[in-house]
């Protein structure tokens, strides 16, 4: 049995809003990303996992326990960063963290201090006057400090500056290395691409596709961008037997879509041309999902 299982989860808010027939499985030790635009249903799905919402249909389980009925039991193993940061009444960050530790029933300060240090957070600041980034860091510490087995993070990097985002992603990497299971949502493809094993894309409450980032990183279809020295060479190349993507005539540029096995052939062909530059266009999660998006749109038409 998978650690996290979402089975035909449906929550219909009417007017096409909500989530519909979500099916997901996250294995122990896996890092799972959840991507989609605002309002796509990421947070709704996560609220079901936390037992805040009752499914209209279907079910969610974590460690085989029902997320709605046994939420409290599940929370022993879960650390949660909510999508919206609104702290309870507490004078400063430490008071808040102490409060959480009491509620969690854990009092291990060591791990907490380690994470505070990692995120360079001074938790003695007044909770209400903290910047958005500091609040976000405080929320992250609260979720991580009791060293939970599963981390459920709803857009955890919002409000963090680029450097802090790096530190946070490093922290996630570390937790992954320690065998933690991570379920994290974001609207940023790039951060999920580096931290997650698999990424699901949700749109209008429906999972469109689940992609393995490993597979995407080692995707065998590549795109190369070539710029020729002059338009004569450019025109001559168009007749070569390659699958061409976008063409930019004024710049003498052309995009070639090609399988790994044909790269050798391409390079040999190009020796007969004068070129300005030759570069691989990285295939990314974003591109992958965009292509699926476009395909879907085409299918609809």
């Amino acid at each position: 049995m998978s650690l996290v299982e979402i089975h035909q989860l449906t929550k219909d808010y009417g007017m096409g809003r909500g989530v519909f027939d979500i099916d997901l499985k996250v294995e122990e030790g896996e890092s799972f990303g959840f991507v989609g635009t605002n309002g796509a249903g990421k947070t709704t799905t996560i609220r079901h996992l936390m037992g805040f919402l009752r499914p209209d249909k279907g079910s969610c389980t974590i460690r085989g326990l029902d997320c709605w009925k046994q939420a409290a039991e599940i929370n022993r193993y879960v650390g949660y960063v909510p999508g919206e940061i609104a702290f309870p009444d507490a004078p400063d960050g430490f008071a808040f963290l102490d409060r959480q530790a009491t509620l969690q029933g854990e009092s291990d300060r060591e791990h907490r201090d380690y994470i505070l240090d990692k995120l360079q957070l001074d938790a003695s600041a007044n909770l209400k006057r903290m910047s958005k980034g500091m609040k976000q860091k405080t929320a992250i510490v609260a979720a991580f400090m009791h060293d939970p087995q599963i981390l459920i993070l709803d857009e955890p990097t919002t409000g963090l500056d680029p450097l802090m985002r790096e530190s946070f992603l490093e922290l996630i990497e570390e937790e992954r290395g320690r065998g933690k299971t991570i379920f994290m949502s974001s609207h940023m493809f790039n951060e999920l691409e580096t931290t997650c094993d698999r990424v699901a894309m949700i749109r209008d409450g429906v999972i469109i596709d689940i992609a393995s980032t490993v597979a995407i990183r080692h995707y065998e279809n590549k795109t190369y961008k070539i710029e020729f020295l002059d338009s004569a060479d450019y025109q001559r190349f168009l007749s070569e037997p390659f699958e061409l993507g976008e063409r930019r005539e004024q710049l003498n540029q052309v995009f070639v879509n090609i399988s790994d096995t044909e790269v050798d052939h391409l390079v040999r062909t190009l020796t007969g041309y004068r070129i300005k530059f030759f570069t691989e266009v990285k295939y990314s999660l974003e591109k992958y999902f965009n292509s699926i998006y476009k395909k879907e749109a085409a299918d609809v038409q």
């Binding site: 936390m50 037992g51 805040f52 939420a71 949660y80 940061i85 509620l103 969690q104």
Partner: peptide, 17 residues
């Protein structure tokens, strides 16, 4: 607390609703 969202920090602990 529900409106502000701070209830999340209480209900994401092993204490029953």
């Amino acid at each position: 607390e529900v409106d502000r969202g701070s209830m999340a920090y209480t209900l994401s602990t092993p204490i029953k609703r």
